[in-house]
Every structure is written in C-alpha cells, then in structure tokens.
C-alpha cells in the first residue's frame, strides 16, 4: 500500500507524459506488478480518450459561423487598410491589395491549423512492413495524387499571396512555382490530405493549365513522405527526379532538401520530368 501511495502521486504526471525520466522506471516496475494502479492508469487514459472524442464531437464550426469569421476578418483587413491610408501622406502609394491578402493569409493560417504543433504519424514509404508494403504504399498514394489531379472541385483560394499561409498545415514552406516558361495559367490552390494505413499527410496542391493541359504541383514534407520507387529514377539537368505513369497520367517527383514536389500532368513523362526539375 505504501508503494501505491508513493506511485499514485506521480500517476497523473506519468499519464500526461510529464514524469521525470528518473521516476519512470520505478513507475513502470510498479505498474507491471500492481493491478490496482494499472487499472487506475487505464481509467485515466480512457477518460482522456472519451473527453477528446466527445468535446470535439460537440464543437464542429457551422458553415454560417465560418462565414461570419471570414467576414469579420475581411472587415478588419479593410479597417487596417483605411488606417494605413490615413496615416500615410502618400496614401495613394499603398495599395489595398497589399494589405488585404495579409489579413486573409492570417485567416487561412488560423483555419488550417498546424500539424506541426502536434505531430501525427504520417505516411512514409519506408515503413517497417518492408519493401513490398512500401511499394504498395506508394502506388496507393499515386492513385490519390491522380484522383486529386483530375478532380474538378473549386480551389480553396486563387490569390498567390495566400500560399504563405499553407506552411503550418503542410509543414514546409510553399512558394509560388513560376511555370511562366511553359506559359502556365494559374488555377488555384488547396490543401490535399493523402492517406494510407500509417496516417495522413497534408500537401499543398497547386493547379495550372499549360496549353489547355492540366498540371498539378504537390508540395509536401519529404521527410515524412517519400515518393520514389516504383517510379523510375532519372536525371534532368543535374537534378535527380523520379518519373512514371499512373492511370494514363504522367507523374514526376523530386526532393529538394526536405521539400518534396510531385507533378501530375496530362502531358508526357518528359514534360513532367522537366517541370518537376525546374521547381525549388
């Protein structure tokens, strides 16, 4: 009983992952032997799990509420713009468009949140199930990349300045890819989650039209998602890239210092490879 008494004072901290390492061994040794304390710990975990589920089940923002928040951000951005114009002698030099996107970017960052706050187990080709599973994994992900390439749903935004706001959600900086040399027309962007049995990883999906052909650029954290084999490795310029086909669409991927790029196109394999090699 006195062992339980001692351990119970540390049980909350242990359950919360806040117990100092020097007490953890003692705690775990006791839990292995003591049915009462391990039941107590399991009940703590069960309460946490139920709380999380139920509190969130009751707190889904309605469409009307989301609209109201967006409208209030817009109004705030306009107030700021007017304030800046009035306080500036050369007010005319300040364009509204330089201020409004800033507030809107803040809005988007708030709406999108960050998984970097609370890392979730994300997809990775190098999982413990071995090579075969990882190839299946990549096939599964390429399928989703094609699904989202051909999907016609409206982009979440079309203002390129808002790309900055995607970083917290995607986990890596997202820059506007200049595909000007291909005569690309920007269509808009959205966050696209990719799923597999290990979890979910958010990517930035950026859509373009090149000569009437669709080009979708995905930007993601390549430390958590490797899209290589079964695609073929090749070198374009000096850049190593992976290319291949999925359901009639060409796919090309590249990794630039932790930032992953995948391009899905209605164009050919060489065009996809050239586009992905030009991204950085």
């Amino acid at each position: 009983m006195s062992a339980c008494r001692r351990v119970v004072t540390l049980l909350d901290a242990y359950a919360d992952g806040e117990l100092e390492p020097e007490h953890v061994l003692e705690m775990e040794a006791h839990l292995a032997d003591c049915h009462g304390c391990s039941s107590r710990l399991q009940l703590e975990h069960a309460m946490k799990k139920s709380l999380r589920r139920q509190v969130y089940a009751e707190a889904q923002p309605s469409e009307a509420f989301q609209d109201r928040i967006l409208a209030s951000f817009q109004a705030e951005a306009e107030r700021e713009a007017v304030g800046k114009l009035e306080s500036s002698q050369r007010g005319a030099m300040l364009s509204w468009s330089s201020i409004v996107p800033l507030a809107a970017a803040a809005a988007i960052a708030l709406f999108w949140s960050s998984h970097t706050d609370n890392p979730v187990k994300a997809v990775s080709a190098g999982n413990s199930d071995g090579n075969h599973a990882s190839i299946l994994n990549v096939e599964q992900l390429l399928d989703q990349i094609v699904d989202r390439h051909i999907d016609r749903s409206k982009p979440e935004f079309t203002e390129p300045a808002l790309l900055d706001g995607m970083e917290p959600e995607v986990g890596v900086p997202v820059h506007f890819p200049s595909l000007a040399q291909y005569g690309a027309r920007w269509q808009g962007g959205r966050i696209v989650p990719l799923h597999n049995q290990n979890g979910t990883l958010n990517t930035a999906s950026l859509k373009f039209l090149v000569d009437g052909h669709r080009v979708t650029v995905y930007v993601y954290n390549s430390e958590r998602l490797a899209l290589g084999s079964p695609l073929k490795r090749r070198v374009v310029g000096n850049e190593p890239v992976y290319t291949g086909w999925k359901r009639g669409y060409s796919i090309a991927t590249a990794d630039r210092h932790g930032v992953g790029y995948a391009v899905a196109t209605d164009l050919g394999e060489d065009e996809g490879a050239e586009i992905v090699a030009s991204l950085h």
């Binding site: 049915h35 107590r40 009940l43 069960a46 799990k49 709380l51 589920r53 139920q54 509190v55």
Partner: peptide, 27 residues
C-alpha cells in the same frame, strides 16, 4: 480495480459508451 475496469470499454480503450455520452455533461 474491478469497478474501474467495468467503467471502461476494453475494445475502444475509452469509457463505456453509456458513460462516454455523459462525459461532457460531467465536465
């Protein structure tokens, strides 16, 4: 201990569904 176990659902490792439904009201 046996009561604590009876309050949990071993399958979901959460509280028994009937108790889970009450947890927000209790909170």
């Amino acid at each position: 201990a046996s009561t604590m176990e009876a309050m949990r659902d071993p399958e979901s490792r959460a509280m028994r569904a009937l108790l889970e439904k009450e947890i927000v009201a209790a909170l």
